[in-house]
Amino acid sequence: MPDEAPAKIPTAKLPTEGNGNGIVLLEVQGLKKSFGPKQVLRGVDLSVTRGEVVTILGPNGCGKSTFLRCLNLLEQYQDGVVKLKGEVVSRGRPEGYHSSRVECAEAEHLRRRVGMVFQRFNLFPHMTVLKNVMLGPRQVLGKSPQDAYAIAERMLNKVGLWEKHPCDPLTLSGGQQQRVAIARALSMNPDVMLFDEATSALDPVMTQEVFRVVRELAAEGMTMLLVTHDMDFARDISDRTVFMEGGIVAAVGTPEYIFDQRPVPGIQKFLQRG
């Protein structure tokens, strides 16, 4: 368990269960991650209830992106535990650890349940928009072409881009590409969605396009963790805001608590700079 006692973290007094029913969906305990000698995450604790939207803020290099990447094991962390619906889905491994076949399969299974949207979209450029969204259901879930097509149609409609399904991803605008990327992640019917600076590569108009989709997902009760640099959006959409600094959760609470009361000096500095 973490050296930094959770009691030290300034936390809002009021319970913040979000719009869910208070069931803890994702639980992270004492997550530590190093890149060689550099310890990037120094014991992160966080629990997210079902339907909650949590934004993660913090200065560059504070480990927020790394934290998200650890949650779906794109990075292997060294210490700690991640639980999904109360079940341990991954745990810390020493650096340079080579996973066994079974552990790889477990990681794959975990990633099906945790959707991820990247800053640079990362659509597959050699496939049409439709194929991009069908790939997961088809190859990973083993759905029939008809079922995968139906799923892709539903997801692309959800992000408002069904009419673009025969296009090449690269012919779309950045905002549209990111919405397709969201549809691709949703096609796996994940329990949680992670957004890693999903709008940092977009201009304000495209950013709003993507935010609209995120808001709709929030309204539907999707559990989401967002790393973002857009303070207004964070304030607007979050049930809870996490402020990270120096590899730990420095403060956590409602957006009002974080933005207005600024419980730790780091937030003050961070918000002034922005």
């Binding site: 990633r111 945790v114 991820m116 659509l123 992640a185 096609s187």
Partner: peptide, 21 residues
């Protein structure tokens, strides 16, 4: 781009699938 492999893994594909597909 490294992100291509990561995107493939993030939808639950195996290393093998992400490489081949």
């Amino acid at each position: 781009d490294r992100g291509q492999r990561e995107a493939a893994l993030s939808i639950g594909m195996s290393e093998r699938q992400s490489f081949l597909l």
